[in-house]
Design a protein around this nucleic acid. Structure first.
Length: 299
DNA sequence: GCATGTTTATTGA
DNA sequence: TCAATAAACATGC
């Protein structure tokens, strides 16, 4: 009774059913710019050279990028350097994590930015690997590429990113986590979440976003810890390890963070290596840079 | 390069 | 089926 769960028909998945927001359309361009300047940082390509490669005029590109990130390309680059990252990490100890915050499993977690109430699955539900669960999903344009949203009737359960053409891959990646769940495409249901998550003007404590954390006990503890990191700030993997009371488990923490199913909402992008270096990101280091830089520009 | 903790895959009864 | 064991990791010295 595994692997027999009906899989959606991707051929029928066609083009985005909703209108593409400017930000959504821009990301592809932005992504290429970031990739280019970070990969070839050795011989820092000029804005002009980059624009030429993308077939756009330098001024146009400059404007597009600034509108997207809130930062000029140059400032953006500075925002993701080691030097800046160290500043984000704050002074020694665990400065960000011991803020007033109640850890009750389904209590309203007080977030600094995106207000979220989280709820963990019971061990039994976890063991069922999604069995008996109906998950509605949909693809939507987002400021960071195509976003795949997955939701149960108890709240948001998954958020993945994909570049154009990678939708199927992203779906498989997510579906693997809960192999026994029933998947139903429902753009209408998931669209609500996209707006809530990616439009900061919709972030409010009045109507907190409802999310469901589906994972092992250890993973859920790590994710809850991540939720305490304020917008535009960052911590190291070992900070998180200390916060959950296992200072030597930083590597395990890394693994758990990597398994986080709700990227962006659970800010896995705000975890850095101790040196301030960006270490890894399930959905691509370039995207991690993009999100971090975007937060720097919108802080 | 080695210690580290958790999860997942593998093996052998 | 199940437990013991090994291998894989978004780390940190």
């Amino acid at each position: 009774m595994n692997a027999l769960a009906p899989r959606p028909d991707f051929a029928a998945l066609a083009e985005p059913a909703i209108d593409v927001t400017p930000e959504g359309a821009d990301y592809e361009t932005v992504r290429q710019v970031i990739e280019m300047i970070t990969l070839d940082y050795r011989d820092q390509p000029s804005l002009e050279a980059i624009a030429a490669k993308l077939g756009q005029s330098p001024t146009q590109l400059q404007k597009l990028f600034t509108r997207w990130a809130g930062l000029s390309p140059k400032a953006f680059l500075q925002a993701v350097t080691l030097d800046h990252a160290k500043r984000l990490l704050g002074r020694e100890g665990l400065p960000l994590l011991e803020t007033s915050y109640e850890l009750g499993l389904s209590g309203p977690g007080r977030l600094h930015d995106l207000f979220v109430t989280h709820e963990a699955m019971s061990p039994g539900e976890w063991k069922a690997k999604g069995g008996g669960l109906t998950i509605r999903y949909g693809f939507h344009p987002s400021p960071f590429g195509i976003a795949l949203i997955m939701a149960t009737d108890r709240g948001l359960a998954g958020l993945a990113f994909a570049d154009a053409g990678g939708e199927r891959e992203a779906f498989e990646d997510m579906a693997r986590r809960w192999p026994n769940a029933q998947y139903v495409e429902d753009q209408e249901a998931t669209q609500l979440y996209v707006r809530r998550v990616f439009d900061r003007s919709h972030w409010s404590s009045d109507r907190p976003l409802q999310v469901v954390l589906i994972g092992t006990d250890f993973q859920v503890r790590v994710w809850q810890s991540l939720l305490k990191i304020p917008f535009g700030k960052a911590v190291t993997y070992s900070h998180v390890a200390c916060d959950i009371g296992q200072p030597t488990a930083s590597r395990a923490v890394g693994a758990a963070i990597g398994a986080n199913p709700i990227s962006f909402v659970v800010p896995c992008h705000r975890a850095l290596g101790k040196s301030g270096a960006l270490t890894g990101y399930h959905w691509g280091l370039t995207r991690k840079r993009a999100i971090l830089g975007w937060e720097a520009g919108n802080a």
